[in-house]
Nucleic acid binder design. Sequence first.
DNA 1: TAGATTGTTAATCGATTAACAATC
DNA 2: TAGATTGTTAATCGATTAACAATC
Lengths: 217, 217
Amino acid sequence: MTEAVKSKEKGVPKPTLSRLPAYLDYLKKKQNEGTEYISTTKMGNDLELYHVQVRKDLAYVGASGKPKTGYEVNSLISNLENFLGYEDIIPVVLAGAGQLGRTFMCYDGFAEYGVKIVAAFDIDEKLIGQYVNGKPILNIKDLPDICRELNIRRAIITTPASAAQEVAGLMINSGVEAIWNFAPTYLVLPKEIVVLNENFANSIAILRNKLKEKGRG
Amino acid sequence: MTEAVKSKEKGVPKPTLSRLPAYLDYLKKKQNEGTEYISTTKMGNDLELYHVQVRKDLAYVGASGKPKTGYEVNSLISNLENFLGYEDIIPVVLAGAGQLGRTFMCYDGFAEYGVKIVAAFDIDEKLIGQYVNGKPILNIKDLPDICRELNIRRAIITTPASAAQEVAGLMINSGVEAIWNFAPTYLVLPKEIVVLNENFANSIAILRNKLKEKGRG
DNA sequence: TAGATTGTTAATCGATTAACAATC
DNA sequence: TAGATTGTTAATCGATTAACAATC
């Protein structure tokens, strides 16, 4: 009946959501250059987007501007950061301490977006017990205990493709609700689990297709 | 006038394209299990897609099935691989031989999709001259010459965010037409250049949003 | 004031879903 | 034959684009 309830139900449109980090990145650069106000016309031009779309996206995160002046860069950044929730620190575990896994353990950029790797897990005895960037590599067998103890709900998979499905199962049994999968395979998991398959094959296909569209094979 | 011309013009619908690698991965697993024929009903069930959509996507890559029997797994795989063009080997250069860059140099999985890193480039004297997985790390200053010499048109960026934009410019001046960017920033480049920004911030935002939609913050 | 810019409402476009006919 | 499955055509849905009114 009341529209307050109705509007809360729907999630963010996916296309909108995927543009928000681009706006944020762009605005931070502008902020560094000392820009105080910016128009959606300018933003749209630079980011190759239609200005009305930019305005709608910004309205979505609660931002508003002034006719003739535009939007205040600082408050726009706050709006976006708030909406994206980068302030909340979320502890995650990582399975697969191979080269990619260890790269992620070292990569402090995750922290900027609120993702904090607390421990890695592997099956390889040679890796178990080591520390990478201050984070321990533990035996995969201990994953359930650690997850429950620390109340971990998010996980990253960087195992080989062959191990990914099994590891994902183990994680889910340990209370994990969301999985960010970098293993080159598509995980098939229960509907209540959130998965994001980060798939290079997919990216390569998209790149090739964009090239083909522009007439270059 | 003739519909032959008309139909060629349009590119693949993006949603379709992004599902194709998932089908391929799924079908290869089925092939391993010895499955010879498969229905779109089954595929749709397993991959959480509507069966008509699966059928349309498969029609797109030139596959066809038989009523009552379904699609032949082997030929479906061929169709997909053909369409995705994983057989053509494309030489690429990589800029930024830091930890992520070196991880990619070691990762032979790229080869499976036709991507072959021929050389890496960096600005760091300590790295220049080293070999990683048989591939040389060269001085970034030599990138233009090497690209022109070997007729390289594709590049990967794994530099820090601060260097990415400049490196991209250098690449474009050296004949590069497509850039796969892993630096945590959105590149703004001429329209004729194809860019794919592989952005973790974006992924994290999507993951969070999926969780929110399911009622878990 | 005039003009740039915001913000909203309507029209278009494309992809997904549904209904149904064709086939083995 | 009957039923499962393909393949096509029409209906729905959601996002983008366009048109326009409001405002500083």
